[in-house]
Amino acid sequence: RKEMTAACTPRRRIINLTSVLSLQEEINEQGHEVLREMLHNHSFVGCVNPQWALAQHQTKLYLLNTTKLSEELFYQILIYDFANFGVLRLSEPAPLFDLAMLALDSPESGWTEEDGPKEGLAEYIVEFLKKKAEMLADYFSLEIDEEGNLIGLPLLIDNYVPPLEGLPIFILRLATEVNWDEEKECFESLSKECAMFYSIRKQYISEESTLSGQQSEVPGSIPNSWKWTVEHIVYKALRSHILPPKHFTEDGNILQLANLPDLYKVFERC
């Protein structure tokens, strides 16, 4: 597991931080080997919608929660590849102030007048994250320049770009939802926020969305749709870069829909 690298990086740093090793061990302890084997050997059937997909393993048909699986995938990559990410360069710098204002204007932020003026909160978020810029760049390849612009994001899987519609809320939550006081809790909560931002979430995906850094293989055609990215990038990574937690067998994120021999018997009677 320590050699797990989802995106190509030129050289690998050895990380011996106790906090990170502890988080890696927790993933191992909570892992479910049968689910790992199923995901490793599954045959992708198709997307139901951005949140759900169908896959077959041996004779069984499964309904998989793409949102939760991708979130767990990105969390584990962030923990196992800690401080070893490439950088996704933004085509132009994104001012943190503008991103924070967009987030505060969104109902998702939960902002009320009692929280104070949005401009003041946005300025605080910019200054707060600028103070964390060195650590964010060093460990997470999340790059913020001296003017308070976001200029780079971590490359977690080759050819995958997170849904940038979720970027404003991500920046807001970096400042408000991460435990910045304790090292282990900081790395864990920061990785979880980043994983949620990178995950496939239906509120940020339309039929026209593209999450891939590449064009489709047909010359002159439109960019790959999110469905292509889910199948050929995300579920491909799920084959080798995730140890599913045991609770996925109990919380409805992986559901067995049918045993195909039983279905064949039904059709034979028709």
Rank of each mutant, 00 (worst) to 15 (best):
R1P: 11
E3G: 04
E3I: 12
M4I: 12
T5Y: 14
A6V: 08
A6W: 15
A6S: 12
C8N: 07
C8K: 10
T9A: 10
T9S: 11
P10I: 13
R11Y: 14
R13S: 12
I15G: 08
I15L: 08
I15V: 10
N16E: 04
N16S: 04
N16Y: 14
N16D: 05
L17T: 05
L17E: 04
L17D: 07
T18A: 06
S19E: 06
S19G: 07
S19C: 05
V20L: 05
V20Q: 13
S22P: 06
S22E: 13
Q24D: 13
Q24I: 14
E26V: 06
I27T: 05
I27E: 15
E29G: 05
E29W: 15
Q30G: 08
Q30H: 05
G31S: 11
E33W: 15
E33K: 12
E33T: 10
V34N: 08
V34I: 12
L35R: 13
L35A: 09
R36L: 14
R36T: 12
E37A: 09
E37P: 11
E37K: 10
M38V: 08
H40Q: 12
N41A: 05
S43W: 14
S43P: 07
G46L: 02
G46W: 01
G46I: 02
C47Q: 10
P50T: 07
P50L: 04
W52V: 04
A53D: 00
A55Y: 14
A55I: 04
A55S: 10
A55C: 06
K60M: 12
L61A: 12
L61N: 01
Y62S: 04
Y62W: 05
L63G: 11
L63R: 06
L63M: 05
N65P: 06
N65R: 02
T67N: 10
T67W: 10
K68L: 10
L69A: 09
E71S: 08
E72H: 08
Y75I: 02
Q76G: 13
Q76R: 09
I79V: 07
Y80F: 04
F82N: 02
A83S: 05
N84P: 11
F85L: 05
G86H: 08
G86C: 12
V87C: 10
V87G: 08
L88Y: 08
R89L: 14
L90M: 04
S91N: 09
E92F: 10
P93F: 02
P93M: 02
P93I: 04
A94C: 12
L96S: 00
D98S: 05
L99G: 00
L99F: 14
L102E: 10
L102G: 05
L104S: 00
D105L: 03
S106K: 02
S106I: 02
S106W: 07
E108C: 05
E108Y: 09
S109H: 01
S109G: 01
G110C: 02
W111H: 02
T112S: 05
E113R: 11
E113G: 07
E114D: 09
E114R: 04
E114P: 11
D115A: 09
D115Q: 01
P117N: 15
E119K: 02
G120V: 15
G120E: 02
G120S: 04
Y124M: 03
I125S: 03
V126T: 05
E127S: 02
F128P: 01
F128A: 01
F128H: 02
L129I: 13
L129C: 05
K130E: 15
K131V: 13
K131D: 13
E134A: 03
M135C: 03
L136I: 07
L136R: 01
L136P: 00
D138A: 03
Y139D: 05
Y139E: 09
F140L: 06
S141Y: 14
S141T: 08
L142K: 01
L142R: 01
L142F: 12
L142Q: 00
I144M: 08
G148Q: 03
N149K: 03
N149E: 11
I151P: 00
G152S: 03
L153C: 03
P154R: 00
P154Q: 00
L155K: 05
L155S: 07
L155P: 01
L156T: 02
I157N: 03
D158P: 06
N159L: 09
N159Q: 06
N159T: 08
Y160F: 04
Y160H: 05
V161I: 02
P162V: 01
P162G: 01
P163S: 08
L164I: 02
L164M: 05
E165L: 05
E165P: 03
G166H: 13
G166Q: 12
L167D: 00
L167Y: 00
P168D: 15
P168T: 02
P168W: 00
I169E: 15
I169R: 03
F170N: 00
F170S: 00
I171Y: 00
L172I: 05
L172D: 00
L172F: 05
R173Q: 15
L174E: 00
V178I: 08
V178C: 01
V178K: 00
V178S: 01
D181A: 03
E182G: 03
E183C: 03
K184P: 03
E185Y: 09
C186W: 03
F187S: 02
E188C: 05
S189K: 04
S189C: 04
L190R: 00
L190P: 00
L190Q: 00
S191H: 02
K192V: 11
K192Y: 12
E193T: 12
E193Y: 02
E193N: 03
C194V: 12
M196N: 05
M196I: 07
M196G: 08
Y198V: 00
S199A: 10
S199Q: 04
I200R: 03
Q203I: 09
Q203R: 04
Y204G: 11
I205Q: 10
I205T: 11
I205S: 08
S206C: 06
S206W: 07
S206V: 12
T210A: 09
G213I: 07
Q214I: 11
Q214K: 09
Q215T: 10
E217M: 09
E217S: 06
V218T: 05
P219A: 09
P219M: 10
I222M: 07
I222A: 11
N224H: 10
S225V: 08
S225P: 07
W226V: 08
W226M: 03
K227E: 09
K227Q: 06
W228H: 05
T229F: 10
T229M: 07
V230D: 02
V230I: 04
V230T: 05
H232K: 07
H232C: 12
R239S: 14
R239K: 08
S240N: 06
S240A: 07
S240H: 11
S240M: 10
S240L: 08
P244Y: 15
P245L: 14
K246W: 15
K246Y: 14
K246S: 11
H247V: 11
F248Y: 06
F248Q: 11
T249D: 06
T249Q: 05
E250H: 13
D251Y: 12
G252T: 08
G252K: 04
N253V: 03
N253F: 03
N253P: 06
L255Y: 13
L255C: 05
L255A: 05
Q256K: 04
N259V: 04
L260G: 08
P261C: 10
D262P: 05
D262Y: 14
Y264G: 02
K265D: 10
K265Q: 06
V266W: 15
V266G: 15
E268P: 12
R269G: 14
R269P: 14
